[in-house]
Computed example of a mutant assay.
Amino acid sequence: MIVNETKNSINGIKSSFPIVLGYLPIGFAYGILGTKSGFSILQVVALSLFVYAGSAQFIAISLLSSGTDIITLIMTIFIVNLRHFLYSTSLSQYMKRINRKHIPILSFFITDETYAVSITDLKENNEYNEKYFYQLFFMSYTTWVISSFIGAMFGSFLNGSVNIGLDFALPAMYIALLLMQISGYRKVFISIFSGLLSISLMYILPGNINVIVSAVIGAGIGGLIDIWTKNS
């Protein structure tokens, strides 16, 4: 069933503003890194168009520039992006209200940031349809591609030794998105616990598996706390 648009419907364009503001410096930084690593502007932008995964793109640029073989590259990016299975599972309960023909298209545009914003909106407002997702996802996607292109253009004119100090941009946006979703002592506890667990596992588990493991354990504990609270 598709909900008819009402005056109270969620505005995807408005909801995309925090993502757009975050993507501008990060996409710009990615574009500069790409061209400084020896890739052409077309190659840098093509990754944004067809991969559209910020952390995976940064990793791909780094690995490809160091001569890593294609199998290692694919496996590394696959592990890094395993968290998207969790995102899809979480959003699936809301996608049931949307015509199934839209699902394959919208699925491509799920990122850390679009998931964080959309899941927050959907929990607070029940008035939404596929238009909301298209607005939110396409605004974010377009911003990422354009900022990547501008960064690549700018990077092609930079001296290789220049460092413009945009390393803070990605962690800063993740912290801002996390704070948007935290409300109540239980979410604060789960957030701190999951973060500390991820840092601890980082020294034990290979790659980025620590993120997946800590997220699953944190979600499990959060579910148990909810069940215990409802039954008490």
Rank of each mutant, 00 (worst) to 15 (best):
Q57C: 07
H102G: 11
T229E: 14
L64V: 13
S92C: 03
S65E: 05
S48T: 10
G151K: 04
Y134H: 04
F109Y: 04
G223P: 05
L196H: 08
G223M: 13
T68C: 14
P25D: 04
I164Q: 06
T142A: 14
I146C: 04
A46P: 06
G34D: 11
I77K: 04
A53I: 08
Y141W: 05
G27C: 04
Y94M: 04
F157D: 07
G38L: 01
N231G: 10
R97T: 12
Y141S: 03
I79Q: 10
R100H: 14
I227C: 04
G222I: 00
S200T: 13
E130A: 11
L205V: 01
F193T: 00
L33W: 10
V51E: 09
I26K: 14
F109Q: 00
V45S: 02
L33E: 11
L166Y: 08
P171R: 01
G222Y: 00
I103L: 13
V44N: 12
S66W: 11
S156R: 12
S194K: 01
L82Q: 04
M153H: 14
A53K: 08
Y141F: 08
I41C: 05
S118H: 05
T89G: 15
F17T: 08
G218W: 00
G160S: 06
S55I: 13
I110A: 00
F149I: 13
V188A: 11
I190S: 07
I59T: 09
L47F: 13
F39L: 08
M139F: 14
I192T: 07
S156F: 03
L166K: 03
V80M: 11
F193L: 03
N11I: 01
M153R: 15
I98G: 10
L158G: 05
K131R: 11
I227A: 08
E124T: 11
I221Y: 00
F109E: 03
G223L: 14
G151R: 06
D167A: 09
I217L: 01
I164W: 06
A215Y: 02
N99V: 11
F133W: 12
I26P: 10
T114W: 02
I59Q: 06
S214I: 03
L166A: 05
N126W: 15
A60R: 01
L49D: 10
V211T: 02
Y185T: 10
Q93F: 12
N163W: 06
L73G: 07
I77Y: 06
V51R: 05
I59E: 09
V80D: 08
V20A: 08
E127M: 12
I212F: 09
A56K: 05
L24D: 01
I79M: 15
P171Y: 06
K96N: 13
I217A: 00
V213C: 04
L33F: 13
N210T: 01
I225S: 03
M95N: 06
Y52P: 09
I79C: 15
K131F: 10
I71K: 14
I150N: 04
S66K: 12
P171G: 08
N8Q: 15
A172C: 09
T68A: 15
I192D: 05
A215M: 07
S183L: 09
G160W: 03
T229G: 11
F39V: 01
A152M: 01
